[in-house]
Every structure is written in structure tokens, then in C-alpha cells.
Write a protein that binds this DNA or RNA. Sequence first.
DNA 1: CTGAAAGCGCTTACAG
DNA 2: CTGAAAGCGCTTACAG
Lengths: 344, 344
Amino acid sequence: MCSPPLPRAVSIKEIARLAQVSHSTVSRALRHSPLVNPKTAERIRRIAEESGYCPSGPARSLVTRHTETIGVIVTSIADPLHAEVVGGIEEAANEHGFSVFLANSNADPEREFHVVRSFQQHRVDGLIVAAPRVGALHMAALSRMRIPIVLVNNQHPSEFVHSVAIANVDAARQATRHLIALGHRRIASLGNRFGYQSDTERFAGYRQALAEADLPFEPDLVVHGDGTPGGAPAAMARLLGLAAPPTAVFCYNDMTALAVLRHLRCLGLRVPEDVSLIGFDDLFLAEYTDPPLTTMRQPMWQMDRAAARMLLDLLEGNAAVENVQMPAELILRQSTAPPGSSHG
Amino acid sequence: MCSPPLPRAVSIKEIARLAQVSHSTVSRALRHSPLVNPKTAERIRRIAEESGYCPSGPARSLVTRHTETIGVIVTSIADPLHAEVVGGIEEAANEHGFSVFLANSNADPEREFHVVRSFQQHRVDGLIVAAPRVGALHMAALSRMRIPIVLVNNQHPSEFVHSVAIANVDAARQATRHLIALGHRRIASLGNRFGYQSDTERFAGYRQALAEADLPFEPDLVVHGDGTPGGAPAAMARLLGLAAPPTAVFCYNDMTALAVLRHLRCLGLRVPEDVSLIGFDDLFLAEYTDPPLTTMRQPMWQMDRAAARMLLDLLEGNAAVENVQMPAELILRQSTAPPGSSHG
DNA sequence: CTGAAAGCGCTTACAG
DNA sequence: CTGAAAGCGCTTACAG
């Protein structure tokens, strides 16, 4: 609240005084308006340069009515998946001369509210929401801001916004097919009960693949974790306690797969010899686990860039597609193999 | 550059009209000034609320001369270590009502320049620089901005700024001591030739530990990677090619250790039976490798919070300590063991 | 307690 | 080509 008197930066007026012209002329010269004598324009620019002039964004935005900023909301910056989100967005934004405000909702409703409010106060030109719940709960507040908004992997379908999302159904089907192709018949789905739509969609893809292969759907083989390593052991214990345990597990995400991997190791079970494991996301670390994790790659960097470009298009007045679905890619590594491959 | 006419947000004037008072009074009421009749203040606030009024940060900052924003510069957002940087900063900033601009320098000098310039235009109140080179190369430009700056893990010593850094010498000494205590005598140091000061300091710590234990320093046991997984295999090959290869390796960071781990596995060497490995950073994934990685934890989240708090202190006019050194913590996991432990 | 006035640093019609 | 003027949305002395 309180703060020391910042040294006043040199303004357009100051350099007008120095250059012996009106501040209007300075403004024009600095903006390279053709309406000013090239000689004086040059002189003005030199003076500005020498005096270390740096235009005031806030002042400028007051009249232009845009700030050249976008806001980005993520649930957790520490989440490796979201770290990439921010990277792709920042890159694309910067290429267009936009700066990005980053905020972390922490999945806390109160915090989410404040974040949106604060972005609104800063008069961001547009918003990218990569925090599923924010999109879900605050859509009304968001659309009241009357600025372009793009949702990344939004978890609740809504018609009136722009979004980019991973093609969950296809991805899950592909993952399951891969396991089926390897010869697995008892394939578990370890979902995420907080995954909302993505969980539903991935589950649907799993069932589709089963149906296509004429494999029976067994409810017992479906358990729901919480999308974090913490919930995985319990879920896995349920599966292993079954009379006929699964020979392969399709995990909601890599974090879950990671925890399962570790849990199985503790139990003395081998991956993929005893149990095959497939993840989702292709986090950086998926390549470094032992065995390296087979997974469905979610091209986050591209998705983010796509989201940013979509927003930038909107900001530049171009029509943009409403929704983009990006395909996931099966990344074959060593955590999947034919069932019982150690014995055969 | 071009952009559609944003719908004009409701201003203080508009609600003044609605409330039949002057806009000065509205301003006061909204800011809870005691200089306004409680009844009318209440009425004004209600009207503001109902009309969806949201104060304009840019307009406000023009007169208050601060924007309640800070800029954060990192080299790479995708780098897991830096993802945490941002998280801690954003959290602390938000608690004090500040928003954060995030930019990624990509270790590109031109980009770095633009980032600094853009933050300056946005009139950020303060800056946190977690991109070592920016601190090194642009210190002059930065200090010309005349705003508080805090450097995180800055790689070049400079007197006139505030900084928080990891205690590299101590950390490296501790790591090396751990290996010595396990009985290792031939301990390699796999450094990072782009690590500037941190590399130098960690190397110094390594030598100190050796000296303390009266172990000879062998230049052959010191190689320099590039701080990324890419450079590790070559560096490791050199070490393994030695007449008497090391039985333990102190790696510059976890990423390097990770790559070494993998490389050794390819070569059929076991960790820690054949070679002990200790990393640095304690990235999230260090816990999930096989074997889990023994490493020196760099408490990034706390370091970031410390940096943010230091900056906030500065912004609030409080004196702040100039430099904070945070101790690293030895995290014992399974990648280190006595030499030749498979045979004994 | 309230309003008129000045001003923050800029841009941009409007007259010359 | 140039300057005086108005205005962007706010805050805050200054007079009542």
C-alpha cells in the first residue's frame, strides 16, 4: 500500500522542452508519424534516446484503450504440465508484442475470483484460462469482462467461448488399442475422479476400444484415483486385490503412472513383465523413469501456442476458429509389452 | 497493432451520474475515504457494484505512480527448476496484492533486451531476475530503471543489487563429504561449463572436501558438461575411459545426473553398485528415477518466496538485507552407496 | 462532508 | 508540418 516516491521517469513533456517543440510533436516523432519534419523528428528521437526516455504504457493505454497484455490463469505453476502451458503462451504472445500476466489459482475459489478481478483491473486485452475449474465456475464473471477468452483443456463444455483441448476420446482409445494389440485382455482404467470431462472422455475412449475388440467391459477394472501420485497406490491395491487382476493399466496421467510404477516396484512386481503401464501427458520425466514410460503425448507447447495465437487473432479482429482439438500421440517406450512376457 | 474497439468499461464518471454526486465523491467512497457521508458512500458502492464497475489500474497508476506489478524474468519456463521459481514468486506477490508479469529470455540477448524494455514500459514497480545472464549483461540497463531489483541465483557477483542464492560452496562440500564418508576415494566432479559462478563455487566446495579429507585432487576427475542431459554422456565417457575410473560422481545438477544414470544403464553399469551418483537441485523427478537420486536439494520455492519478499520489502520502503544465501540440504536416496557395494 | 480544479503521461482530431 | 486543446479514468489538494 504505502511505497517510496519513485523517481519520476522522463516524460514526453520533458523532452519537448529539451527539443524546443510541443509535446504533440514529440509524441508524433516518437511514433514515427509522417506528420513531422524528418529532420526535427530525428533530432527529437535522438534527444529521447539520450535522455533515456521510455514511454509509459499505462498513460498510453488510457487513450488507446488497450494494454498489450494478456492474462494467463493456471491451477498450479509447479505442475510440470502447466509449466509448459505458460512457456508456449509467453513465446507466442511476445512475438506479437504482448506481455503476459501470470496467475496461479491454486484451485482455490476465492483466489480464482481475485485473480480474475485483478486481471480485469489491469485491463488485460485478453485471457487464457488453463485452470479447468476457473473456466467452469467463473464463466459468467469472465464473459462479463467482455474481452476475448481462450480456454485450454477446459473441463466443462460451454458454447460461447474459444478453446483448445486434447482429443481425449481418441487418445484413450488409441492407448487402449495399443494394449489390446499387445495381447492384453484384462485392461484396467485408472482414472481421475477430479478430472471432470477429461476423465469422462478418456473413459469413453477406453470403452470404445474394448467394444471394438469385442472385449467385455468389467466395472471392477475401473478405479478412480485423484490425478496425483498420492491416490495411485490405493487405487492400484484395489486392482491387484481382484481375483483376476489386470495385466495392463491405462493411467489417467503420467503422475499416476509414475506412482503406480513405484508402488509395483515396492511390491516386487515388474513393469512391463508382470504389468504393462501406459500414461498420459508425456511429461518430461516420462522418458527418464525405469522403465521409460509408454504414454500418450499431449503436445502442450503446441496447444499453448495455438491458444495464444487464437487469442491474438481475436485481439487483432480476425475471426478465429471456435474450438481446436489436438490429437495426442502414442509414444512407445518400455513400460508396455505383451502380457506375461517374462515367462514367454 | 490494430485491434477492435473494446467496449468501454463503466467509469467513475458514469457511476457519479447514476449516484447524482461528483466523481470526486465517487472516488472517495470507493476508496473508503472517511471524508464521505457513510450513507452516500454506501449508496455509491452499491451502485458501483450493480453496474459492474471495476477500477482502471492504468488510470490509477498514472496518478499514484505505481502499478502494483512486478516483472519476473527467467531463462526458460520449461525448465523444471524455473517453473518453481515462478510459483513461489507469484504466490508471495499475490499475497501482497501484486500481479506478476512473466517473461522468458530464452537466453537470447536480443530477447533479453526487449523483455527488460517491455517491463519498463509497463512501469513494473520491481523486478526479479532469475535469468543469470540477464543479471550479468544488463545490469547497467536494469539499474537505470531505478526500481528495486532482486536477483535469484545470479551468476556474477555485483555489489549494488539484492539477491538470493544457494550456498554453492557449502552444498558442494557437503555432497562430496557424503561420498567420502561412504568410503569413496576417486570422486569425479561433472561440472557445467556454462554455469559461471555456480560452477566455480561448486567446484571449490568439491576441492575443499577433498582437502579436508586429505584426498589428492586429480584434474582428470574433473570434466565439464553443459548442464543439460545432452552433454552428460560425452563427459561420462571421458571419466570411464580413465585408467582408474571414479567410483562416484558429483553431478552439477539433477538433469546431468539423470542422463548419466541412463547412460550407465546402457553401458550395463549399475548405480550405485558400480558407480555412486549424487545430483543437485532435487527436481521433482529425482524421487522417481531408478534408483531414486541422492541429491542436494535447492529449496527453490523458499528461495523464490524469499526473493519476492525481499522485493516487496523494498517496495514498501523497508530496508532489506542485501544478499541471502540459502543452505542446500542433502537428500539421501539410493544412488549413492559404499564403493564396490555389490561385491561386499 | 462535497465539488470544482488540476494533473498524472500520453494521443489525436482540429486549426492553422 | 506544428501547436493548442480536449480527453482517456483516476486521485487529491483546495475551497467551500
